[in-house]
Amino acid sequence: MLDQNAVETEIPEKENPVESLLRMDRMPHIWCPGCGIGTTVNCFARALEQSKLDLDSVSIVSGIGCTGRVAGYLNLDSFHTTHGRAIPFATGLKLANPNLKVVVYSGDGDLFAIGGNHFIHAARRNVDMTVICVNNLIYGMTGGQVAPTTPVTAKGTTYPYGSYDPPFNLPYLADSSGAVYVARWTTYHVRHATKAIKEALARRGFSFVEIISPCPTLYSRRNRLGDGLDQMNFYKENSVIKNGADTKDVGMDFQGKITVGKFVDRERKTYRQLMNEHLTNVFGEQYTPYEG
């Protein structure tokens, strides 16, 4: 209860703290009511603020899809690439200017179906970038087709009687391809996701954060799972936090338990370090290490 000794200590602020990082002239955004992508953008913006990075040296790249629109809404140097090619573009960006902090922000379809090949090779080479994947378990923008992450028995427009394709286990794929940081959270775990993005931004090497998000218009409607809020409550009740869990065991079943947490955190030499070391060994004094 308020009492008479109440003292004003702060001047009320009118603007939302993340507005400075967003292109407010493009709001309201295109995402459906109950979609979690906006929440992940909120987490990302706050992680970026807390990480105290120089915003002029941060660039964000995204592909095509609902999550691909993120690059257009963030007030950073951004590029909206062709479908699936966000990681090759980001690799080129990082090689041309190693001082940049490159972030790839895209959806599960763009990163793992159309651009799956690029993902595994960027992780294998350990290109220094942060990949944030918003996984809504379906192709959202094109109308609810079954994606490589759709769990078995979930329905999509291309599998009206339920999918029978075994899905990808994204943390396992990233781990086995060689990512140095792998975490998975849901849009319910906003504080954890913010912290994970902050940690991923601080890592040198290929860091990967998967955020599971509701898709109320396509995934939830076709599978009769209610709206975005029902999915958020489902995440709240069915998420199991297991930091350091073996990524082999974190696959997802249709409406089953979701294992979340930070799974991998290790150090490996980045692509540029390996290149400089190898070429110095071969050419000796003749070679000037590439620093951008």
Binding site: N16, M27, G38, T39, V41, N42
Partner: peptide, 12 residues
Amino acid sequence: GLYCPDFAIHGF
């Protein structure tokens, strides 16, 4: 404010 997907609410 952290949950809002539309940046429409924030507390202080």
